[in-house]
Amino acid sequence: MDKTTIICRCEEINCEEIEEAIGHDARTFDDIKRLTRCGMGPCQAKICISLVADVIHEQTGSHLHEIPLPRMRMPISPIKLETLATNSTTFSSVKSVMDEVELEEGKVR
């Protein structure tokens, strides 16, 4: 890999950008992700995960088994919102900002 090698294809992040993040003391995939967007695209780090680990290893000397994996989250592979939606309009954990406005004797506190 040279400096211009693309590590994250989704977000077009090259090796030099990963190295710069490590220069700012980023030590894990997720640290680097939040600084550069590496791994935030549609593939969700499936392509860049081991390449980034290689760069961390080269720059810091950490062994590969010591480098934490990125946190994978649902849905793993992109799905449409309508697949998740149940079309209910009753909410419990999800709030509306208007519901949070507190009135006291008919007036805003």
Binding site: P75, L81, T86
Partner: peptide
Amino acid sequence: TTLDVIQETANMAVHYVPSLRKAKIVRAF
């Protein structure tokens, strides 16, 4: 991330902005 709250969140999205139905989601956090 838990499925019940993510589903409620999806419901809010399509309730507020119906055209989001067809949008793909890539991540929950």
